[in-house]
Amino acid sequence: MKAGIVVFPGINRERDMAIALERSAGHAPRMVWHRESDLSGLDLVVIPGGFSYGDYLRCGAMAAQSPIMGAIRAHAARGGHVLGVCNGFQILIEAGLLPGALLRNQGLRFLAMDCHLKVERADTDFTRHYQQGEVFRAPMAHGDGNYFAAPETLDRLEGEGRVIFRYATPTGEITPEANRNGSQRNIAGIASENLRVLGLMPHPEDLVDPLMGGEDGKPLFDSICAALAA
């Protein structure tokens, strides 16, 4: 698998992502500076977390207009895999590659804590190493992760099986208490129609080493590496 991590100037979790990908793939991903325009040869394009352009107003809005997004759109249109985490998820939404919006967290505070994610679909290229309905832990760290979409969009996402992760209790119940940022229907991660573009708010890449408290996030990277192994 050839993975590339897109680095906008204010992206700051690119090294975390590189460590996680290397742990699963056995080799380091390519770092792609945001002014590059050639993504050819990449199987997986990752937009990691951070504050792409400072993001003082609408997170991801400026990055979504940057030239490299054209190449990322083309990669997705070719059926290529794209993973957006946190700011990366915000950017994919702002770029129109995923539906909805990410609003300020309910409570209007930055939230840095472990959350629990319920795997709604274990039959995607990103989730095959999890079990259907499995709950895993992931750190989250964001101010704007409150997923919002019109009811008909939410219905469509659910109907098409595109809700991949939901915030849950450690035992897998979908409750308001488990949903600290206030996301509609506890949605933490969604995918494109072909299930090859995945966006999620929490950071599985920060939990891939027992020394840091667990390997809960590792199956996501194992999954995509296995799916794209060639």
Partner: peptide, 24 residues
């Protein structure tokens, strides 16, 4: 919980876990 303490992926002992923070 308002401070990102996991970024970098090297935080071995987080706030509230040990008498000193441990960063690898």
């Amino acid at each position: 919980e308002q401070y990102d303490y996991t970024i970098g992926g090297q935080t071995v002992k987080r706030p509230g876990a040990a008498d000193a923070a441990i960063v690898k």
